[in-house]
Design a protein around this nucleic acid. Structure first.
Length: 703
RNA sequence: GGGCUCUUAGCUCAGUUGGUUAGAGCGCUUCGUUUACACCGAAGAGGUCAGAGGUUCGAAUCCUCUAGGGCCCACCA
């Protein structure tokens, strides 16, 4: 044995053996109770980052349960990640002087498909490097034919059940990228934006968007505002840049009398709040800005101008006519930006598919309240409820090509919509919706979609899954939707427990991001410290669900720990001539059998303490306390077993004590295996030359 | 504005249902090496647990307030 443990010599080799022997498959324990985790599917086009490395938690659970004899299934998959991926691809196109507008929908889709295919294997190989015992024979992809088919079916079922409607709703639309964004995808920024106090007949009202005034269909004041009582319900005559007009004054609670003048213009087609007000008062929608970002015919002489220019000219013309009371140039407010191109998002009315979330959300709240789904750490329950209780209908249409195209057809003559489970309706009059589904619509059904399409019987056996483990930042976008859609599709919860891990920041506590240039690639650290050390460092000393900063000293400590283990094994190996063949190292000794062989009181004591440790580790893993399990193992193995016990045995070693030493060390390796799979397996093989594998040996129980 | 979370040793962080002298890693000090490991061992220094008040026999832990940091959500015409 080498003096220093060299992870590079063993990791890839051991992983290959495990995989080739089929040890990652649940069939390895054919009679075991199923234990299932579905891997949150990484972006098929992406690369490994520390978020993925945190899935170590899942590997620990799977390896632990596999050793306990469960039919443990950890199912891998990848996500097409609609907007993300298309965005990356469009940047590639830009490099060669092209844009998506140079291709038709089918061609562009095929090009992105090919691009993703060439990169798809990358992320999987990287997950292997972390030692993840995923059942690769069951891997799925959100664009697999069978998955897509089921997604169509879900949409049709929801449509037939009246849960899906086509509505004209305001969407946050990027006129540059030509797509709308969900609430979750918008980035906000504080920006200076002059507040114009404009004259509306007898009133003065404040607006940051004078160019939308052509779309005004009312003026609103607070119904309790005594200043404006006489106008409520009246029509007032106003002077505008396009001539005289009449407009209704309404009273609405949403108007803040403190802001501006307490009177506000209502533009239902171009403002989210106004849209709601418009609905309450049955106001007409007048769209004056087109999807190209230009003013349309209703804007009179401003037609064809981009928003910015139109605003400038409208203000100038109003000033000339004396319609501007004054301007607050200091005004700062928050505006929604396109997270891709940073352009200001326009609220525009658009026909989209929406899911009525209320009935789904109510059930999703109930299952958590009733404890059918448990959330760890518990504090995230509040987030979950808060989100689901205030949910707006879910817009699932996306104006991008990279995704699952919505199986809805519009009749060219009648305008009627037909939803199918994938097939075009007969006849030539039907045109398919160009939009694709929001990525979360498919990934939100992931536990159902995967288990329905792996092998026959899988769904029955492995659904509902045991644990959904993921970063807390996608609680809303993903976890809550899986609960809603899972319940809808199967009448059962998709998973029994939700476990959140924190984010991994850079060594200075700053969030890792490409734009900041502080991204650390886990693969480099695996190379340098070993996969076991990287895994251990992420688990040790960090409470479940808390963010952590990457710590080189912790990585160092973890690597030294692997070396310590290796040298403990070396010591045992060096004394191997003491071994008596009548004492064979076995996997399933009872405590009694072992104690009967112990002669020295220190050996007896160590057997007892090791048993206690095994019980403690089992208890901690069952309550997802990985941190303390890791700490207990580290402390016991290093400072009790190595520093004290081995030193003690050294001076008095004989056949019996040597056997006890071997056996207890084996037990410790088993307990540590879920955390540090490679070095423990390597030692197992090296020390005892076994044909079988530690990873599928039985969990120590001393029963 | 609403919600969540954090503030513990020089640094990074643990501290499980409140219970004796508050722990770890790294760093620091002193000592140790004829073979398991210097990626080691032994010993040690270092904390008024952000501040104030309260509950309690007992508080880092529970409650209230204050200060500071972080995150999420909503709204801002």
């Amino acid at each position: 044995m080498d003096k220093v443990y060299d992870n590079k010599k063993t990791e890839a080799k051991i992983y290959k053996e495990w995989e080739e022997k089929g040890l990652f498959k649940p069939e390895i324990n054919p009679k075991g109770k199923p234990y299932t985790i579905i891997l949150p599917p990484p972006n098929a086009n992406g690369a490994l980052h520390f978020g993925h490395a945190m899935f170590t938690v899942e590997d620990i659970l799977i390896r632990y349960h596999r050793m306990r004899g469960h039919a443990a299934l950890w199912l891998p998959g990848t996500d097409h990640a609609g907007i993300e991926t298309q965005f990356v691809f469009e940047k590639k196109l830009k490099e060669i002087g092209k844009s998506r507008f140079d291709y038709d929908q089918e061609t562009l889709y095929q090009m992105i498909w090919d691009y993703v295919e060439t990169n798809k294997g990358g992320i999987e190989d990287q997950l292997r490097k972390l030692g993840f015992s995923l059942d690769w024979s069951r891997r799925k992809y959100t664009l697999d034919k069978d998955i897509v088919k089921l997604v169509y079916k879900t949409f049709k079922k929801m449509f037939d059940d009246g849960l899906i409607y086509r509505g004209q709703r305001l969407v946050n639309y990027c006129t540059f990228d030509g797509t709308s964004f969900s609430d979750l995808e918008i980035t906000y920024e504080e920006r200076n934006s002059p507040l114009y106090y404009i004259k509306y007949g007898p009133l003065v009202l404040a607006t940051t968007r004078p160019e939308t005034k052509f779309g005004d269909t009312a003026v609103a004041v607070n119904p309790k505002d005594i200043r404006y009582q006489q106008y409520i319900g009246q029509e007032i005559e106003i002077e505008t840049v396009l001539g005289r007009a009449r407009i209704k004054v309404i009273g609405d609670e949403s108007v803040d009398p403190e802001f501006g003048t307490g009177a506000v213009k209502i533009t239902p087609a171009h403002d989210f709040n106004d849209f709601e007000v418009g609905k309450r008062h049955n106001l007409e929608m007048k769209q004056v800005i087109g999807f190209d970002g230009k003013m349309n015919g209703l804007a009179g002489k401003y037609q064809g101008m981009y928003i910015k220019q139109a605003r400038k000219e409208v203000v100038q013309d109003m000033q000339k006519k004396g319609l501007i009371d004054h301007i607050d140039h200091e005004y700062v407010h928050r505006i929604g930006l396109c997270y891709k191109c940073k352009n200001v998002l326009e609220p525009l009315p658009m026909e989209q598919w929406f899911i009525k979330v209320k009935p789904l959300a109510e059930k999703a709240i109930k299952v958590v309240k009733k404890g059918k789904i448990k959330i760890y750490p518990k504090s995230f329950e509040a987030w979950y409820f808060n989100w689901l209780e205030n949910l707006r209908d879910w817009n699932i249409s996306r104006q991008i090509v990279w995704g699952i195209r919505i199986p809805a057809w519009k009749n060219k003559n009648t305008g009627e919509w037909k939803v199918t489970d994938g097939e075009a309706p007969p006849g030539n009059d039907w045109e398919q919706d160009k939009d694709t589904f929001d990525t979360w619509f498919s990934s939100g059904q992931w536990p159902y979609l995967t288990l329905q399409t792996t092998r026959s019987g899988d769904f029955k056996e492995f659904y509902p899954t045991d644990v959904m483990e993921t970063a807390y930042d996608i609680l809303r976008a993903w976890v809550s939707r899986m609960v809603m859609l899972g319940l809808y599709l199967t009448d059962e919860v998709p998973f029994k427990n939700v476990l959140f891990h924190g984010l991994v920041n850079d060594p200075y506590g700053k969030k890792m991001s490409k734009s900041k240039g502080n991204v650390i690639n886990p693969l480099e650290l695996i190379d340098q410290y070993g996969a076991d050390a990287v895994r251990f460092a992420l688990i040790y000393g960090n409470a479940t669900g808390n963010d952590q900063s990457l710590s080189y000293s912790k990585l160092d400590a973890a690597r030294k720990f692997t070396n310590k283990l290796w040298n403990m094994a070396r010591f045992i190996n060096m004394k191997r001539e003491i071994r008596n063949s009548k004492f064979e190292i076995r996997n399933n000794l009872t405590r009694k059998q072992l104690e009967d062989l112990a002669v020295h009181k220190n050996d007896k004591e160590m057997i007892e303490r090791t048993e206690k440790l095994a019980q403690e580790i089992t208890r901690l893993l069952d309550k997802y306390d990985f941190n303390h399990a890791a700490q207990n193992l580290y402390d016991f193995i290093w400072h009790e077993f190595a520093d004290k016990y081995i030193e003690d045995v050294k001076g008095r070693i004989d056949e019996n004590s040597y056997f006890i030493l071997n056996t207890l060390f084996l037990i410790l390796l088993k307990l540590l295996h879920p955390f540090m799979p490679f070095v423990t397996e390597d030692i197992y093989k090296t020390l005892w030359g076994k044909e079988d594998y530690l990873m599928v040996s039985n969990w120590p129980s001393f029963v």
